[in-house]
Amino acid sequence: MFYPNSPQTSPQLTQIPYGQQYAMMQRQIQQPYHPFATTEPQARLYPYHYQGPIQQEQGGFITQQSTAASPQYVQMRVTPVDQSIMSGYPNQTANGSSSSSFNYNIHPQQQQQQQQQQQQLRHHAMPVGSVPLQDDRYRKQLIVNYLAPDVTSTDLHELFSRFGELDGARIIYDKQTNMSKGYGFVYFCHAEDAKEAVERMSGYEFHGKWLKVGYSTNPLNIVPSNSSPYVHAGSRGAAG
Rank of each mutant, 00 (worst) to 15 (best):
F2Y: 13
Y3A: 06
Y3L: 10
S6L: 11
Q8M: 09
T9C: 11
S10M: 14
Q12F: 15
Q12N: 01
Q12W: 08
L13N: 05
I16H: 02
I16D: 10
P17G: 14
G19E: 14
G19I: 15
G19D: 14
Q20N: 11
Y22R: 03
A23F: 12
M24K: 00
M25E: 14
Q26G: 00
R27V: 15
I29N: 00
P32W: 15
Y33P: 14
P35M: 14
A37G: 01
T38Y: 15
T38S: 13
T39L: 11
E40R: 09
A43I: 12
A43Y: 06
Y46S: 13
P47Y: 15
Y48Q: 05
H49S: 10
G52N: 04
I54A: 11
Q58V: 08
Q58Y: 00
G59H: 14
F61P: 12
T63N: 12
Q64T: 09
S66H: 13
S70L: 13
P71D: 08
Y73S: 02
V74E: 05
V74L: 04
M76G: 03
T79K: 05
T79S: 05
D82W: 10
Q83K: 09
I85Q: 14
Y89F: 14
N91H: 08
Q92G: 03
T93G: 13
N95G: 01
S97R: 09
S99M: 01
S100F: 15
S101Q: 11
S101M: 00
N103D: 00
P108N: 02
Q109S: 11
Q109P: 15
Q111G: 02
Q113R: 08
Q113Y: 11
Q115P: 11
Q117M: 15
Q118A: 08
Q119L: 05
L121E: 10
H123F: 15
H123A: 11
H124D: 07
A125C: 15
M126L: 03
V128R: 05
V128L: 06
G129C: 12
V131R: 03
P132M: 13
Q134V: 01
D136N: 09
R139Q: 10
R139H: 01
K140M: 01
K140Y: 00
K140V: 01
Q141S: 00
I143C: 10
I143A: 07
I143D: 08
V144K: 00
V144W: 04
N145E: 00
Y146E: 12
P149A: 15
P149G: 09
D150P: 07
D150W: 02
T152K: 02
T154V: 13
D155P: 03
H157F: 04
H157A: 11
L159T: 07
F160K: 02
F163G: 11
D167N: 08
A169R: 02
R170Y: 10
Y173R: 08
Y173M: 06
K175Q: 09
K175I: 03
N178Y: 12
M179F: 06
M179P: 05
M179R: 08
M179V: 05
S180T: 08
F185L: 09
F185H: 10
Y187D: 11
F188P: 14
E192K: 08
E192C: 06
K195H: 05
K195P: 09
A197M: 05
E199P: 14
M201D: 06
G203F: 01
E205L: 03
H207L: 03
K209P: 06
W210M: 11
W210R: 07
W210A: 00
W210N: 08
L211T: 08
K212E: 09
V213D: 13
V213H: 11
G214H: 10
Y215I: 04
T217F: 02
P219M: 10
I222F: 06
I222N: 07
V223R: 04
S227P: 06
S228N: 05
S228H: 13
P229A: 00
Y230F: 03
V231M: 00
H232F: 07
A233M: 00
A233K: 14
A238G: 12
A238E: 04
A239M: 09
A239Y: 07
A239G: 14
